[in-house]
């Protein structure tokens, strides 16, 4: 594959995404749908909120996969992140935790998920576990222990209303029409997600750690002979992915204000969507964040449709990301996965 074809494919994909959005808008206009009622400032702001947990988990998963480990357990880590935040806020602040309790909860969740992913990474990297099965196991474990913790604490799979993060409004900037309320009068966690995505991009493509990460996933032997311990790079990447997925779960809780543990829990497939997002973003953190915004918007489109009086089946709309990924993989050639993904690497020594 040549450089130019690679570039043009990324462009295709970007073009495809934009074309899709435009097509939807045109269709809506053609069908005389009240666009104004749908594309509101509130919608944009809600979409960004919904996108942040997905973006965080996606950046994490992307790092793991770039290093050669397919972390299919993002969903499970997100569940742990959400339930830990809720539990810590509840333990610290009782029925009505305050903002500090929430923030401690978020930090605590990240710490906890980091510890969990240290164990996970040890099993995968050190003991060469099967990445797919172990990742699924993390999901099952989250699906089991997440609600279990909720039942222990609240006698119910769902927590009562606890606390959600307070909006921050930046003076002056928030006065800007449209952009102001969307970007400068919102959850600080949206900014955090944006910051993480940008930082992840810089680290991946502009620092030596990013080089190592890419080499570990593409040709671990090359990295090994360059004197860098492949196992350590992969270990760090997996731990990072677990921590970020946990943060994603924490953000999800902080935006919702209560933990919901019925069915697939409140995470409800967002960990999987995160994988979709980074595939869609072609392993680029910014692309992944962009895809997350697209999916966050989709999540909220439903509400907009309802307020605009349009009936469209929820369940089918939810399928869009999955269908889109299959279309991308098929139509625009396979997404180039790092070539050593899934193979345990053993140093010769």
């Amino acid at each position: 594959m040549s450089l130019s074809s690679y570039a043009s494919r990324t462009r295709y994909r970007l073009g495809g995404g934009i074309a899709f959005v435009v097509a939807v808008l045109l269709a809506l206009v053609a069908l005389d749908v009240p666009l104004r009622a749908i594309l509101t400032v509130g919608f944009a702001e809600r979409s960004l909120r919904a996108a942040s947990p997905i973006a965080l988990a996606a950046v994490g998963g992307l790092y793991a996969e770039k290093s050669g480990v397919f972390n299919i357990g993002l969903e499970g880590f997100m569940i742990f992140g959400a339930v830990t935040t809720a539990a810590m806020a509840f333990v610290l602040g009782g029925d009505s935790p305050g903002q500090p309790d929430l923030w401690v909860g978020i930090v605590g969740a990240v710490v906890f998920c980091t510890l969990l992913s240290v164990v996970f990474a040890t099993l995968l990297v050190r003991f060469r576990g099967n990445q797919i099965v172990a990742g699924l196991a993390v999901w099952f474990i989250g699906l089991g222990f997440g609600p279990f913790i909720a039942v222990l604490l609240w006698g119910n799979r769902n927590s009562p209303g606890l606390v959600s993060v307070r909006q921050v409004s930046i003076p002056v900037l928030s006065e800007i029409p449209v952009l102001g309320p969307v970007l400068f009068e919102t959850s600080p966690l949206v900014w955090l997600a944006l910051l993480v995505a940008v930082a992840a991009w810089v680290v991946l493509f502009r620092t030596k750690y990013g080089y190592w990460l890419q080499a570990a996933g593409e040709n671990p032997e090359a990295l090994d002979t360059a004197g860098i311990d492949v196992a350590r790079v992969r270990f760090a990447a997996v731990v990072f992915s677990g921590a970020l997925a946990g943060l994603g779960g924490a953000v999800l809780f902080a935006h919702a204000g209560s933990f919901n543990g019925t069915g697939d829990t409140m995470v409800n497939g967002r960990g999987w969507i995160a994988i979709v997002a980074y595939l869609f973003g072609n392993y680029n953190p910014l692309g992944a964040a962009g895809a997350a915004v697209l999916f966050g918007g989709l999540e909220n489109l439903q509400i907009q449709f309802q307020t605009a009086g349009i009936a469209f089946p929820n369940k089918l709309m939810d399928l869009f990301p999955y269908v889109a990924v299959i279309a991308v993989l098929t139509v625009w050639g396979s997404t180039r996965m790092p070539s050593a993904v899934g193979e345990p690497y053993e140093s010769e020594d």
């Binding site: 810089v202 502009r206 620092t207 030596k208 080089y211 190592w212 890419q214 080499a215 593409e218 040709n219 032997e221 090359a222 990295l223 002979t225 360059a226 004197g227 860098i228 180039r336 070539s339």
Partner: peptide, 24 residues
């Protein structure tokens, strides 16, 4: 022992990257 999707320069310095303020 080369990483195909990386550039020639990146491959040559891999593991021995000169850095400045954290960046390569």
């Amino acid at each position: 022992q080369l990483v195909e999707p990386m550039t020639v320069l990146q491959n040559v310095v891999l593991g021995h990257e000169p850095t400045e303020r954290g960046l390569v």
